[in-house]
Simulated assay, not measured.
Amino acid sequence: MIAMSGSSVWGEVWQQRIADALAAHGLLIRGGLNFTPDEHAPPGPAERPARAVLLVGQAGARPWPHFMRWRRERPEVRENPLDTWSREVIASVAARFGARAVSPSDRPFLPFQQWAMRAEGLKPSPLGILMHPEYGLWHAYRGALLFDHEITVEVPQKTIHRCDACIGKPCMNACPVDACSVQGFDHRACLSHVRGPLGDACRQGGCLDRNACPYGAAYRYPAEVQAFHMAAFASPT
């Protein structure tokens, strides 16, 4: 059983309703946390420092059919369509439940990765993507809901960081230009390769290093989803 901080039964029921609203779009709650009094929290719905945050994201490619249906209905949205869809969906849920919606692409950037590590107890993989014990590298955070009140949150259980137990680190050996190394991510080398004549495999099937990871294979994004993300990465805009 997962321990809970807080004791409000109403809070659990209320979060289930939020989860149901997100599930209608293929999204899910990815943990939450209450801000400490000395934390520099972003503004909540009342424009005062928020008291709590629920992270919203995905596991595998569950949102893809919902996003593609929206895209067919909104062909005029050409720039950052997935981000636009995510913002609209999460904002609509926020409005229903008295929250303020925020996005990882908001400026100034909010500490989504730090929130995720606290909320779900995750650690970064060698690629920089957070390693999830079940989803592997095949998950994402699409936004968050900020609240003016504290919420009931799950206390993440301690789990083995899969990267610590991984032999050989195949995620560090699949890239033909060694864009990911112990020195970090070489963005320029990666982008040049993906855009170049030898980058077909990456353009059509996604990052070779990411696909080499053995964990969370059941949640691996289909090739069309990976190609979509890679096209966005390689876009000159």
Rank of each mutant, 00 (worst) to 15 (best):
P156G: 08
I167V: 12
A189F: 07
N173Y: 05
M172R: 08
C175L: 04
C175H: 06
A179L: 03
C180W: 12
D178S: 09
V177A: 01
C180K: 12
C171V: 02
D164Q: 11
S181N: 06
K169F: 10
S181P: 04
G184N: 01
P156M: 09
V182A: 14
Q157F: 12
P170L: 03
I167W: 13
D164W: 12
Q157L: 15
N173T: 14
G168S: 07
H161K: 07
H187F: 12
A174Q: 07
P170H: 02
H187Y: 11
A189H: 06
C166G: 10
A174R: 08
I160P: 14
Q183I: 04
D164A: 14
I160L: 15
T159A: 15
K158Q: 11
C171R: 00
M172F: 09
L191H: 04
C180R: 11
T159E: 14
C180P: 04
G184I: 03
S181Y: 02
A179Y: 01
H187G: 05
T159Y: 14
D186F: 06
Q157H: 15
H187D: 06
G168M: 09
V177C: 01
K158P: 13
G168C: 05
P156L: 10
Q157N: 13
D186C: 02
H187W: 08
V177F: 03
H161L: 06
L191P: 02
V177Y: 02
R188A: 13
N173E: 13
A174H: 06
C166R: 04
C175N: 03
M172H: 03
H187P: 07
N173P: 11
Q183A: 11
M172V: 03
A165Y: 04
C190N: 01
R162E: 12
T159P: 14
A174M: 08
H161V: 08
V177I: 08
C171P: 00
A189S: 10
K158C: 12
P176I: 01
R188P: 08
D164H: 12
T159W: 15
C171D: 03
M172Q: 11
A165H: 10
V177E: 02
I160H: 13
C180E: 08
L191R: 04
K158V: 15
C180Y: 11
G184C: 01
A189V: 09
C163W: 00
C163V: 04
A165F: 08
T159F: 11
G184F: 00
